[in-house]
Design a protein around this nucleic acid. Structure first.
Lengths: 123, 123
DNA sequence: TGCAACACTTACATTGATGTCAGGCTTTTC
DNA sequence: GAAAAGCCTGACATCAATGTAAGTGTTGCA
């Protein structure tokens, strides 16, 4: 498929798609006229790149674990697991704190409701 | 504590710590001589900021959900849960694919080992 | 007292991801 | 076959996160 459709399906701009290519993250074939032609495989790869970037990885880091980008599980995906696990730790820490906070708010709300019902406002 | 120790304990540079402050993400008190003085609370806050940034959030986004940064669960942490959940989706997608890949490699290894043992190489 | 270590501020430099615009083909459509 | 819409390349612009250096005050130890 052509650039426009690919970008739309991925929810990113053509500019970003070209960027991935120029950064050596993917290799897109061209039709006779020079237009890029994205295969479904290309799409999936680009989708992974998009996710990696959205998760705070740089193209440099992503390039370093390019085995993590192909459909084929051909390589041991050098370092990929470790790096991702690290990111996951960051997320997990944040999420745990957010959850605590959310629970605190919920509790406060519950207490408030209890207080009200204790006053006989509720059956 | 002073800047150096704070930075070391957080595993980041003083420069970044100052950056958080200038970006309005945190407010650090000073001692009489003008030196920054980080409290444990400050450290925790800075740690969260560090994690948010490491997870791909911009200072702009973080500022927008500053309620997620305080120790106190005083606010509903506007938007924080949603944004984090979104990031989590990105990570989860990647991790699922990585896990698949890792399993494929493990399986291949297992098959290989089986093949060898079938040859009687193993007791 | 004087040096070493640390702080502070300000300003410029860099790197990365994206946006945007220009100039020039190709394809489609009326 | 001419206009409209898509694609391409390349250059320049921007914003954010960091690095780094310059110039200066402070603290502490020998």
């Amino acid at each position: 498929m052509q650039a426009k459709e690919a970008a739309e399906r991925l929810g990113i701009t053509q500019r970003m798609l070209r960027h991935y290519e120029k950064e050596g993250l993917m290799d897109v074939s061209r039709t006779f006229n020079g237009y890029r032609s994205y295969s479904e495989t290309d799409l999936r790869r680009a989708g992974r790149i998009r996710d990696f970037i959205a998760t705070g990885f740089s193209t440099r880091e992503i390039r370093a674990m390019s085995a993590c980008l192909s459909d084929e599980g051909s390589g041991p995906c050098e370092g990929g697991i470790e790096k991702l696990t690290e990111k996951l730790m960051h997320i997990d820490r944040l999420r745990a704190e957010l959850d605590d906070k959310r629970n605190a708010v919920l509790e406060r709300l519950a207490t408030l409701r209890n207080g009200l019902s204790a006053l006989g406002t509720d059956p």
